[in-house]
Each structure stands twice: as structure tokens, then as C-alpha cells.
């Protein structure tokens, strides 16, 4: 379980929230605190007071994969193959294992053709795919995705979701502005002004949002 208690950080106010394993989607208006909550869950930011525990451990003691929505902030190296190898290399994995991990994830993500490219040569969507592959290469316990789907087509998003489901990452927390993506998750959190105002299964939460633009268009159109 991910347990948040007495959490205070900038405008974030979450008194108590328990998140079970699965794919958790976070939605809400611009500026409501989605990215800040994701930064706290990933350990990039540390609560001013209160705590976040992932299976009983603080975020910073957990293996985390993180994908920033602005991928240039995520990427450290100039070559795609070096970027994918960065996490295994930083954790001193043997060269042969690193090479095979890089090849595997590139193959699974369908980006093997990008391995010899430089980051500068990539499109915005390709940078997101590289950032996502780098986050997944070492099988994190929690994968945190900040609007990765803004720059990807729907087919790619569905392929990636399938890959994430089968990869066995216990917790995936993602914020999204695509309500169809949010509708496919296991749990949905709605944020407003730094607080989680609704949480539950997507079908329950969206039932309270049916008069707003946040209701999934495909549900409105009944397809």
C-alpha cells in the first residue's frame, strides 16, 4: 500500500489517503497540484510535514521510475543508448547485463531503431518513449508518469499500458488530461486546489463528474 498521512507541501493538503497496488490516475484542473503530488510520491520532493510510505518505506528508499512531461528535463545523456543504460550503470550493473537490459526494453517499447540516435534527433513523442524506457529498464517498485500521454498517439498509449501491466510494476501513478486514459486505470484521484476531492474506481468517480468537461467523451458518446 501507499500511505499518505498529514501531508503538507506548498499547496498540497492531504490528511489521509491509502492507495492499493495498480494503475492510479490523477486528474484535475491545471495548477491543482497533480505534478506536485507526483513529485512527492517519487521522492523528488520531500513533504514539509507528514509522510508518504510505499510498502512501509519512504519514497526515497524505494526504486522509483519517473517520467517528466517535459522530457528535456528527464534526459541526461546525448545518445539514446546511453540514456537507457544510465540507471543500470549508476547502480553498477555489469556491462553485459546492462547491454541486455537496454536491448530488451528497447525491443519491448518498440524503439530499437532509436538506439543509435542522439536525443537532439528525436521528436517530442520519441523523447517521452525514451524517458519511459529509461524509467522501466530496472523494474521499479513505483512508476510515476507526469502526463506522458500528452505527446503520444492513442495506439502507442495502449501498447505502453499493456507493457506496463505485464511488466509487474506494483504501483503506477500517472496524471493525465486524457479522460479516456484515466477511465482505464484501477483507481482515480481527482485533485482541486492541492486536495484530493474524490477517489475511487473510475466508474464511481466519473459518475460525480458527468456534468463537467472532465467526463470521458467516449462514455458520453456511449461507445
Amino acid at each position: 500500500m501507499i500511505e499518505l498521512s498529514g501531508l503538507r507541501y506548498r499547496n498540497i493538503r492531504i490528511d489521509s489517503l491509502t492507495i492499493p497496488p495498480g494503475i492510479i490516475s490523477v486528474i484535475g484542473p491545471n495548477g491543482s497540484g497533480k505534478t506536485t503530488l507526483l513529485r512527492l510520491c517519487s521522492g523528488i520532493a520531500v513533504p514539509e510535514t507528514g509522510m508518504i510510505l510505499i510498502n512501509g518505506k519512504p519514497s526515497r528508499e524505494t526504486d522509483v521510475g519517473w517520467v517528466n512531461e517535459f522530457p528535456d528535463k528527464n534526459i541526461l545523456f546525448s545518445r539514446v543508448s546511453d540514456e537507457l543504460a544510465s540507471a543500470p550503470r549508476f547502480s553498477h550493473q555489469p556491462c553485459a547485463e546492462t547491454d541486455s537490459a537496454v536491448k530488451n526494453i528497447a525491443h519491448q517499447m518498440n524503439i530499437a531503431h532509436l538506439l543509435d540516435r542522439t536525443i537532439k534527433e528525436l521528436s517530442g513523442g520519441e523523447k517521452i518513449l525514451v524517458a519511459l524506457a529509461s524509467a522501466l529498464v530496472q523494474h521499479p517498485k513505483i512508476l510515476v508518469l507526469d502526463e506522458y500521454d500528452s505527446h503520444l498517439d492513442e495506439t502507442r498509449c495502449l501498447q505502453i499500458e499493456e507493457l506496463i501491466r505485464t511488466s509487474g510494476v506494483p504501483y503506477v501513478i500517472r496524471c493525465t488530461q486524457q479522460m479516456e486514459t484515466a477511465a482505464r486505470g484501477d483507481l482515480l484521484l481527482v485533485m482541486e486546489d492541492g486536495r484530493v476531492t474524490l477517489s475511487g474506481k473510475p466508474v464511481q468517480v466519473f459518475a460525480s463528474l458527468d456534468q463537467t468537461p472532465f467526463y470521458p467523451m467516449s462514455w458520453r458518446c456511449k461507445v
Binding site: P29, E147, S150, Q177, F214
Partner: peptide, 13 residues
């Protein structure tokens, strides 16, 4: 180029 990325549903509309 990708004008709707990052915008919430109300702002997209």
C-alpha cells in the same frame, strides 16, 4: 504544434 498537451479539459474546450 500539440496545442492541447497539458491543458485540462475545460481549457481545451
Amino acid at each position: 504544434d500539440e496545442p492541447f498537451s497539458s491543458l485540462d479539459a475545460r481549457e481545451k474546450e
